[in-house]
Design a protein around this nucleic acid. Structure first.
Lengths: 157, 157
DNA sequence: CTTGAAACAAAGCCCTC
DNA sequence: GAGGGCTTTGTTTCAAG
Protein backbone atom coordinates (compact mmCIF):
# COMPACT_ATOMS: atom_id res chain seq x y z
CA UNK A 1 0.00 0.00 0.00
CA UNK A 2 2.87 2.37 -0.75
CA UNK A 3 1.63 5.74 -1.89
CA UNK A 4 3.97 6.49 -4.75
CA UNK A 5 3.60 9.46 -6.98
CA UNK A 6 1.73 8.51 -10.12
CA UNK A 7 2.48 10.51 -13.21
CA UNK A 8 0.75 10.71 -16.54
CA UNK A 9 2.85 7.95 -18.06
CA UNK A 10 1.83 5.57 -15.28
CA UNK A 11 -1.82 6.36 -15.93
CA UNK A 12 -1.36 5.75 -19.64
CA UNK A 13 0.19 2.38 -18.92
CA UNK A 14 -2.59 1.50 -16.48
CA UNK A 15 -5.24 2.45 -19.00
CA UNK A 16 -3.67 0.24 -21.65
CA UNK A 17 -3.41 -2.63 -19.19
CA UNK A 18 -7.00 -2.17 -18.05
CA UNK A 19 -8.18 -2.32 -21.64
CA UNK A 20 -6.35 -5.61 -22.18
CA UNK A 21 -4.54 -7.41 -19.40
CA UNK A 22 -2.58 -9.50 -21.88
CA UNK A 23 -0.76 -6.82 -23.84
CA UNK A 24 2.99 -7.28 -23.90
CA UNK A 25 5.37 -4.77 -22.42
CA UNK A 26 6.79 -4.32 -25.88
CA UNK A 27 3.45 -3.24 -27.26
CA UNK A 28 2.79 -0.89 -24.35
CA UNK A 29 6.21 0.58 -25.05
CA UNK A 30 5.27 1.15 -28.67
CA UNK A 31 2.01 2.85 -27.72
CA UNK A 32 3.54 5.21 -25.17
CA UNK A 33 6.68 5.80 -27.22
CA UNK A 34 9.19 4.51 -24.71
CA UNK A 35 11.68 1.66 -24.55
CA UNK A 36 10.35 -1.73 -23.38
CA UNK A 37 12.71 -1.83 -20.44
CA UNK A 38 11.40 1.49 -19.20
CA UNK A 39 7.82 0.23 -19.34
CA UNK A 40 8.84 -3.00 -17.64
CA UNK A 41 10.34 -1.05 -14.76
CA UNK A 42 7.18 1.06 -14.43
CA UNK A 43 4.91 -1.94 -14.43
CA UNK A 44 7.07 -3.66 -11.85
CA UNK A 45 6.95 -0.67 -9.55
CA UNK A 46 3.19 -0.37 -9.99
CA UNK A 47 2.84 -4.01 -9.05
CA UNK A 48 5.19 -3.73 -6.08
CA UNK A 49 3.44 -0.66 -4.71
CA UNK A 50 0.10 -2.42 -4.88
CA UNK A 51 -1.45 -0.20 -7.53
CA UNK A 52 -1.53 -3.17 -9.88
CA UNK A 53 -3.15 -5.83 -7.73
CA UNK A 54 -2.90 -8.65 -10.23
CA UNK A 55 -4.14 -10.17 -13.44
CA UNK A 56 -7.30 -12.20 -13.82
CA UNK A 57 -8.39 -14.52 -16.56
CA UNK A 58 -12.13 -14.00 -17.02
CA UNK A 59 -13.86 -17.32 -17.53
CA UNK A 60 -17.41 -17.52 -18.81
CA UNK A 61 -19.46 -18.76 -15.90
CA UNK A 62 -22.40 -19.54 -18.15
CA UNK A 63 -20.32 -21.91 -20.24
CA UNK A 64 -19.23 -23.79 -17.17
CA UNK A 65 -22.41 -24.47 -15.31
CA UNK A 66 -22.42 -21.44 -13.07
CA UNK A 67 -25.18 -19.57 -14.80
CA UNK A 68 -26.97 -18.21 -11.75
CA UNK A 69 -25.80 -15.01 -10.10
CA UNK A 70 -27.42 -13.67 -6.95
CA UNK A 71 -26.81 -10.86 -4.53
CA UNK A 72 -27.53 -11.83 -0.97
CA UNK A 73 -27.87 -9.41 1.89
CA UNK A 74 -26.89 -11.04 5.15
CA UNK A 75 -27.89 -9.55 8.48
CA UNK A 76 -25.58 -10.47 11.30
CA UNK A 77 -25.79 -10.21 15.06
CA UNK A 78 -24.68 -6.72 15.94
CA UNK A 79 -21.45 -6.12 17.78
CA UNK A 80 -18.38 -8.28 17.90
CA UNK A 81 -17.67 -11.09 15.51
CA UNK A 82 -18.75 -9.23 12.42
CA UNK A 83 -15.32 -9.43 10.85
CA UNK A 84 -15.07 -13.15 11.32
CA UNK A 85 -18.38 -13.61 9.56
CA UNK A 86 -16.96 -11.82 6.55
CA UNK A 87 -13.92 -14.06 6.54
CA UNK A 88 -16.07 -17.16 6.73
CA UNK A 89 -18.28 -15.97 3.90
CA UNK A 90 -15.21 -15.29 1.79
CA UNK A 91 -14.09 -18.88 2.18
CA UNK A 92 -16.95 -20.23 0.10
CA UNK A 93 -15.71 -20.55 -3.47
CA UNK A 94 -19.15 -19.75 -4.88
CA UNK A 95 -19.07 -16.44 -3.02
CA UNK A 96 -17.25 -14.07 -5.35
CA UNK A 97 -17.62 -10.86 -3.40
CA UNK A 98 -18.10 -9.99 0.25
CA UNK A 99 -18.86 -6.40 1.17
CA UNK A 100 -19.53 -5.11 4.65
CA UNK A 101 -22.10 -2.39 4.21
CA UNK A 102 -23.36 0.61 6.09
CA UNK A 103 -26.84 0.85 7.49
CA UNK A 104 -27.92 -2.13 9.49
CA UNK A 105 -25.08 -4.49 10.31
CA UNK A 106 -25.04 -6.57 7.21
CA UNK A 107 -23.00 -8.03 4.42
CA UNK A 108 -23.75 -7.94 0.76
CA UNK A 109 -22.31 -10.93 -1.07
CA UNK A 110 -22.29 -11.90 -4.71
CA UNK A 111 -22.92 -15.57 -5.24
CA UNK A 112 -22.40 -17.51 -8.44
CA UNK A 113 -23.84 -21.02 -8.56
CA UNK A 114 -25.35 -23.56 -10.91
CA UNK A 115 -29.05 -23.09 -10.25
CA UNK A 116 -31.58 -22.13 -7.62
CA UNK A 117 -31.15 -25.46 -5.89
CA UNK A 118 -27.44 -24.77 -5.43
CA UNK A 119 -28.28 -21.28 -4.21
CA UNK A 120 -30.53 -22.77 -1.59
CA UNK A 121 -27.71 -25.03 -0.45
CA UNK A 122 -25.35 -22.07 -0.19
CA UNK A 123 -27.87 -20.04 1.80
CA UNK A 124 -28.29 -22.98 4.14
CA UNK A 125 -24.53 -22.96 4.68
CA UNK A 126 -24.68 -19.24 5.46
CA UNK A 127 -27.24 -20.04 8.14
CA UNK A 128 -24.78 -22.28 9.95
CA UNK A 129 -22.48 -19.33 10.61
CA UNK A 130 -23.19 -18.29 14.16
CA UNK A 131 -24.04 -14.59 14.11
CA UNK A 132 -26.01 -14.78 10.86
CA UNK A 133 -29.60 -13.76 11.49
CA UNK A 134 -31.29 -13.89 8.12
CA UNK A 135 -30.58 -13.55 4.42
CA UNK A 136 -32.32 -11.83 1.56
CA UNK A 137 -31.39 -12.81 -1.98
CA UNK A 138 -31.90 -11.02 -5.26
CA UNK A 139 -31.64 -13.17 -8.36
CA UNK A 140 -29.89 -11.69 -11.39
CA UNK A 141 -31.79 -12.22 -14.64
CA UNK A 142 -29.39 -10.50 -17.01
CA UNK A 143 -25.98 -8.98 -16.49
CA UNK A 144 -25.50 -6.04 -18.82
CA UNK A 145 -22.03 -5.08 -17.65
CA UNK A 146 -19.48 -6.62 -15.34
CA UNK A 147 -16.02 -5.17 -15.12
CA UNK A 148 -13.39 -3.91 -12.74
CA UNK A 149 -11.99 -1.23 -15.00
CA UNK A 150 -11.96 2.06 -13.13
CA UNK A 151 -11.82 5.36 -14.98
CA UNK A 152 -8.44 6.98 -14.56
CA UNK A 153 -8.04 10.74 -14.64
CA UNK A 154 -5.43 11.64 -17.24
CA UNK A 155 -4.20 14.72 -15.43
CA UNK A 156 -1.63 14.53 -12.66
CA UNK A 157 -2.71 14.47 -9.03
CA UNK B 1 -20.75 -19.08 -27.74
CA UNK B 2 -19.73 -22.42 -29.16
CA UNK B 3 -20.48 -25.26 -26.76
CA UNK B 4 -17.37 -27.33 -27.04
CA UNK B 5 -16.70 -30.35 -24.95
CA UNK B 6 -14.53 -29.44 -22.00
CA UNK B 7 -12.30 -32.13 -20.67
CA UNK B 8 -10.24 -32.37 -17.54
CA UNK B 9 -7.16 -30.87 -19.16
CA UNK B 10 -9.13 -27.80 -20.17
CA UNK B 11 -10.34 -27.38 -16.61
CA UNK B 12 -6.80 -27.70 -15.30
CA UNK B 13 -5.64 -25.02 -17.68
CA UNK B 14 -8.54 -22.76 -16.73
CA UNK B 15 -7.80 -23.22 -13.05
CA UNK B 16 -4.17 -22.25 -13.55
CA UNK B 17 -5.20 -19.23 -15.59
CA UNK B 18 -7.77 -18.19 -13.02
CA UNK B 19 -5.16 -18.34 -10.29
CA UNK B 20 -2.86 -16.08 -12.27
CA UNK B 21 -3.86 -14.50 -15.55
CA UNK B 22 -0.27 -13.73 -16.42
CA UNK B 23 1.24 -17.22 -16.47
CA UNK B 24 2.93 -18.08 -19.73
CA UNK B 25 1.85 -20.94 -21.91
CA UNK B 26 5.22 -22.50 -21.29
CA UNK B 27 4.64 -22.60 -17.55
CA UNK B 28 1.15 -23.97 -17.92
CA UNK B 29 2.64 -26.67 -20.12
CA UNK B 30 5.14 -27.54 -17.41
CA UNK B 31 2.42 -27.75 -14.77
CA UNK B 32 0.09 -29.96 -16.78
CA UNK B 33 2.89 -32.03 -18.30
CA UNK B 34 2.19 -31.22 -21.93
CA UNK B 35 4.08 -29.49 -24.73
CA UNK B 36 3.73 -25.71 -24.98
CA UNK B 37 2.26 -25.94 -28.45
CA UNK B 38 -0.47 -28.24 -27.21
CA UNK B 39 -1.40 -25.89 -24.40
CA UNK B 40 -1.32 -22.94 -26.76
CA UNK B 41 -3.80 -24.68 -29.02
CA UNK B 42 -6.10 -25.43 -26.08
CA UNK B 43 -6.02 -21.87 -24.81
CA UNK B 44 -6.74 -20.54 -28.27
CA UNK B 45 -9.76 -22.77 -28.65
CA UNK B 46 -11.01 -21.80 -25.20
CA UNK B 47 -10.70 -18.16 -26.15
CA UNK B 48 -12.36 -18.65 -29.53
CA UNK B 49 -15.29 -20.56 -28.09
CA UNK B 50 -15.92 -17.81 -25.56
CA UNK B 51 -15.05 -19.82 -22.48
CA UNK B 52 -12.11 -17.54 -21.87
CA UNK B 53 -13.69 -14.11 -22.12
CA UNK B 54 -10.53 -12.10 -21.67
CA UNK B 55 -7.84 -10.93 -19.31
CA UNK B 56 -8.12 -8.07 -16.86
CA UNK B 57 -5.49 -6.11 -15.06
CA UNK B 58 -6.82 -5.41 -11.56
CA UNK B 59 -5.98 -1.87 -10.50
CA UNK B 60 -6.30 -0.74 -6.91
CA UNK B 61 -9.18 1.68 -6.86
CA UNK B 62 -8.24 2.94 -3.41
CA UNK B 63 -4.79 3.97 -4.61
CA UNK B 64 -6.29 5.98 -7.42
CA UNK B 65 -8.97 8.08 -5.80
CA UNK B 66 -11.90 5.74 -6.28
CA UNK B 67 -12.21 4.59 -2.71
CA UNK B 68 -16.00 4.57 -2.45
CA UNK B 69 -17.98 1.57 -3.60
CA UNK B 70 -21.76 1.51 -3.53
CA UNK B 71 -24.51 -0.80 -4.69
CA UNK B 72 -27.49 1.05 -6.03
CA UNK B 73 -30.87 -0.47 -6.67
CA UNK B 74 -32.69 1.35 -9.46
CA UNK B 75 -36.41 0.99 -9.96
CA UNK B 76 -37.52 1.60 -13.51
CA UNK B 77 -40.88 2.18 -15.16
CA UNK B 78 -42.33 -1.24 -15.83
CA UNK B 79 -42.74 -2.51 -19.34
CA UNK B 80 -40.84 -1.55 -22.43
CA UNK B 81 -37.56 0.31 -22.43
CA UNK B 82 -36.04 -1.64 -19.60
CA UNK B 83 -33.20 -2.91 -21.75
CA UNK B 84 -32.24 0.55 -22.93
CA UNK B 85 -31.97 1.72 -19.35
CA UNK B 86 -29.45 -1.01 -18.70
CA UNK B 87 -27.41 0.03 -21.71
CA UNK B 88 -27.42 3.65 -20.61
CA UNK B 89 -26.35 2.72 -17.09
CA UNK B 90 -23.52 0.65 -18.51
CA UNK B 91 -22.17 3.65 -20.38
CA UNK B 92 -21.15 5.43 -17.19
CA UNK B 93 -17.50 4.59 -16.53
CA UNK B 94 -18.02 4.74 -12.77
CA UNK B 95 -20.69 2.04 -13.11
CA UNK B 96 -18.75 -1.21 -13.00
CA UNK B 97 -21.65 -3.65 -13.01
CA UNK B 98 -25.22 -3.56 -14.23
CA UNK B 99 -27.52 -6.43 -13.33
CA UNK B 100 -31.18 -6.70 -14.23
CA UNK B 101 -32.78 -8.43 -11.29
CA UNK B 102 -35.90 -10.40 -10.57
CA UNK B 103 -38.63 -9.16 -8.33
CA UNK B 104 -39.77 -5.63 -8.99
CA UNK B 105 -38.48 -4.26 -12.29
CA UNK B 106 -35.13 -2.98 -11.16
CA UNK B 107 -31.44 -2.89 -11.80
CA UNK B 108 -28.69 -3.45 -9.30
CA UNK B 109 -25.53 -1.55 -10.21
CA UNK B 110 -22.12 -1.41 -8.61
CA UNK B 111 -20.70 2.09 -8.56
CA UNK B 112 -17.12 3.07 -7.79
CA UNK B 113 -16.44 6.74 -7.24
CA UNK B 114 -14.22 9.11 -5.30
CA UNK B 115 -16.47 10.05 -2.41
CA UNK B 116 -20.08 10.56 -1.38
CA UNK B 117 -20.24 13.82 -3.27
CA UNK B 118 -19.32 12.04 -6.49
CA UNK B 119 -21.88 9.35 -5.69
CA UNK B 120 -24.53 12.01 -5.38
CA UNK B 121 -23.56 13.37 -8.79
CA UNK B 122 -23.79 9.90 -10.30
CA UNK B 123 -27.20 9.28 -8.75
CA UNK B 124 -28.37 12.60 -10.16
CA UNK B 125 -27.27 11.42 -13.60
CA UNK B 126 -29.25 8.21 -13.11
CA UNK B 127 -32.31 10.34 -12.45
CA UNK B 128 -32.07 11.94 -15.87
CA UNK B 129 -32.67 8.59 -17.55
CA UNK B 130 -36.32 8.60 -18.50
CA UNK B 131 -37.85 5.44 -17.03
CA UNK B 132 -35.87 5.63 -13.78
CA UNK B 133 -38.24 6.03 -10.86
CA UNK B 134 -36.05 6.04 -7.79
CA UNK B 135 -32.74 4.75 -6.47
CA UNK B 136 -31.62 3.17 -3.25
CA UNK B 137 -27.90 3.04 -2.47
CA UNK B 138 -25.96 0.92 -0.05
CA UNK B 139 -22.50 2.19 0.84
CA UNK B 140 -19.73 -0.37 1.15
CA UNK B 141 -17.59 0.11 4.26
CA UNK B 142 -15.16 -2.78 3.78
CA UNK B 143 -14.68 -5.20 0.93
CA UNK B 144 -13.51 -8.54 2.27
CA UNK B 145 -13.37 -10.35 -1.05
CA UNK B 146 -13.75 -9.32 -4.66
CA UNK B 147 -12.99 -11.78 -7.41
CA UNK B 148 -14.35 -13.35 -10.56
CA UNK B 149 -12.74 -16.74 -10.07
CA UNK B 150 -15.41 -19.39 -10.34
CA UNK B 151 -14.89 -22.82 -8.86
CA UNK B 152 -14.39 -25.40 -11.58
CA UNK B 153 -15.44 -28.98 -11.08
CA UNK B 154 -12.48 -31.23 -11.77
CA UNK B 155 -14.55 -34.12 -13.00
CA UNK B 156 -15.74 -34.35 -16.58
CA UNK B 157 -19.23 -33.24 -17.57
C1' DC C 1 15.22 6.24 -19.96
C1' DT C 2 18.07 4.17 -23.79
C1' DT C 3 20.82 0.80 -25.88
C1' DG C 4 22.48 -3.73 -26.73
C1' DA C 5 22.89 -8.67 -25.61
C1' DA C 6 21.31 -12.94 -23.84
C1' DA C 7 17.62 -15.90 -22.24
C1' DC C 8 13.07 -17.01 -22.90
C1' DA C 9 8.43 -17.50 -24.82
C1' DA C 10 5.09 -17.31 -28.74
C1' DA C 11 3.49 -18.98 -32.88
C1' DG C 12 3.70 -21.54 -37.02
C1' DC C 13 5.04 -25.83 -39.39
C1' DC C 14 5.58 -30.60 -39.97
C1' DC C 15 5.72 -34.93 -38.08
C1' DT C 16 3.99 -38.97 -35.38
C1' DC C 17 0.49 -41.40 -32.86
C1' DG D 1 -7.84 -34.89 -34.24
C1' DA D 2 -4.44 -34.04 -30.74
C1' DG D 3 0.03 -33.78 -29.03
C1' DG D 4 5.37 -33.58 -29.57
C1' DG D 5 9.43 -31.36 -31.43
C1' DC D 6 11.63 -28.09 -34.22
C1' DT D 7 12.45 -23.31 -36.10
C1' DT D 8 11.75 -18.32 -36.52
C1' DT D 9 10.17 -14.35 -34.75
C1' DG D 10 9.30 -11.43 -31.05
C1' DT D 11 9.51 -10.51 -26.05
C1' DT D 12 11.40 -10.31 -21.55
C1' DT D 13 15.09 -9.18 -18.66
C1' DC D 14 19.52 -7.60 -17.21
C1' DA D 15 23.58 -4.76 -17.29
C1' DA D 16 25.82 -0.59 -18.52
C1' DG D 17 25.80 4.09 -19.99
Amino acid sequence: MNNRKIDKLDLEILNILQADGKVSNAEIARKVGKAPSAVLERVRKLKKSGIIEGYECIVSHKSLGRGLTAFTSIRVEEGVGATEVGQKLAEFPEVLEVHYTAGRDSYLVKVRVEDTEALQATLAKFGTIGPVRDTNSTIVLTTVKESRVIPLPLEND
